[in-house]
Amino acid sequence: MIRSEYQHHNKTKGYSTPSKLRYRIERIWRRVWLRKLILWVLILIFFATSLTSGLLIFKNEFNFRGFKSTMEAFAFERPELSIIDLNIKGANPDLSNQIKAILQLSFPINPLKININYLQELINDVESVDFSKIRITKNGILEVVIRERIPVALHRDGKQLMLLDIDGRRIGEVFSRLDRQDLPLVVGQGANYRVKESLEIYKLASPIINRVRGMILVGERRWDIVLDGNLKIKLPEKGAKKAFSAFLESGEVMKILRQDFSAVDLRNRGKVIVRTKTTVIREEKI
């Protein structure tokens, strides 16, 4: 009671005092470091906003692309960094010319502008390339190391003559059988998937290799060996090699082959069935 009287008495002729909260806030606000911090933040915000808004407003006037390219030229296009030549290793001249044509690079070139992975893909897409490796050497040469695929057989598919490697992958096209007489010929759908098997049979056929013209895969099951004179040796589906070698080892081979048969059928085990020329049979029938 006394106290409230006192306060009332004093309030009428006193002065206003800052509240506790205001006093504390003002004390905090007067800290010099705080003011400096706020000043710097404001300056930073001001510059950031003015820069971004300026760029947004004048973006049409400002040649960004030209600016970018000049900056890039300044930063990256340095002679000590650029690639000056291409070196292809492990490829024959034809293939390396082909790769050079595919890559379409003009030197000197900035290494930042070429995409090594893309180049690698391009090279791997070339059919006769088995495996390739690209690197940039210290003295600025783009080095491509290549392992070529080796053709082992020819495959006739329709009118096309394809070169096949040992895995049956197509390497390239040959326009005439005469171009690669050294390679055996396989014919028929799916024959390219069984190159290995056909090569083994070819190897067995070495005693009569002069007469062999090619091999036909019949129905994607079994092989026919075609000799000149249109004579076919029909191999069984299973145990083809064994049957063929047994046939070759029998003394009858030369005898049979000298005859004018149209086919020698080895499909039945232990039996060799020969067929005469169909024309003769047809004549008999008629």
Partner: peptide, 16 residues
Amino acid sequence: SIRSVVQQAQKMAATT
């Protein structure tokens, strides 16, 4: 009264 007088002086001195 301490608060008010200190605040006024701090204001003049621009420090705490």
